[in-house]
Design a protein around this nucleic acid. Structure first.
Length: 255
DNA sequence: ATGGCTAACATGGTTAGA
């Protein structure tokens, strides 16, 4: 099975890219973030027309997550149970016996801001949720836009980013706490090209300069991670006209 | 240099992203 994650930065704008990408990359499950669509406007027929099942939790303008799957999606749960949040950032479902949790971690704006505090509270709630899900499911994958670069090698210019949002010590500690529930960063299980990133700013020709961050992650619990045969970032869609600022990340599992 | 682009909502300029 192949799982992929992609922050599309508006599914309305990016639907053609998503359809083209799926045609060339027939993954089993694609988790989307920043659909920016209320559920009533979700292009359900377009996705189902590709022969895929779909689940979504969205809102207008901001956030929004969706799961696209070749096989049926069971036991769909939106949000973090017990964590009161207006923002549509989490969607879980079971596909082929694997529990899949699609996450769009808050941006955090700047260290010390109200949004930063929300990001840390949100990550603590996610950790507890994932810990609970781990006890219920043999195979678990938590994938999405984490808005945290795990290590300095995931940052194009660590000096310039030092201490700022996406790399700050509390954020990295929160990601570590999430991993410590028993998850593995699939990408780092394999040799990878140096300077591998999944997001590049639209400004300053950042993509051309490869001035990016690796903030889109596929985390699998240990039993599933042991079956991971590869993980890569697909930069191709970032080169298209009117791209998302994020690239898809794909992981393959021998299950 | 704290901007630079892009998208949404709106229909000019603000908010947000990362």
């Amino acid at each position: 099975m192949q799982f992929a994650t992609w922050n599309v930065n508006s599914l309305r704008v990016r639907l053609p890219h998503v359809k083209d990408w799926l045609a060339g990359n027939p993954v089993d499950v694609l988790a989307l973030q920043e659909t920016k669509l209320p559920d009533a406007d979700f292009p359900r027929e377009e996705i189902e027309g590709l022969g895929m099942a779909v689940a979504f939790s969205g809102q207008r303008t901001y956030n929004g997550v969706a799961l696209l799957s070749r096989a049926p999606i069971e036991d769909v749960v939106a949000g973090i149970p017990g964590f009161d949040d207006e923002q549509k950032r989490v969607l879980a479902g079971t596909v082929g016996g694997v529990r899949v949790i699609d996450v769009y971690v808050p941006n955090g704006q700047s260290v010390g801001s109200e949004k930063y505090e929300y990001k840390l509270r949100w990550l603590a709630a996610l950790r507890d949720y994932v810990a609970a899900e781990s006890t219920q499911h043999a195979h678990l994958v938590v994938l999405g836009d984490y808005n945290i670069a795990p290590e300095d090698r995931d940052v194009h210019d660590p000096k310039a980013w030092e201490g700022s949002v996406h790399v700050s010590t509390p954020e990295r500690a929160a990601l570590r706490a999430l991993l410590d529930t028993g998850l593995v960063d699939c990408f780092r299980q394999f040799d990878q090209p140096e300077k591998s990133y999944s997001w590049w700013d639209y400004r300053m020709m950042a993509f051309r300069r490869n001035a990016g961050l690796r903030i889109d992650l596929i985390l699998a619990n240990t039993p599933l991670a042991e079956k991971c045969g590869g993980c890569h970032i697909d930069k191709a869609p970032r080169k298209l006209e009117r791209p998302s600022d994020h690239a898809p990340v794909v992981a393959a599992f021998d299950i």
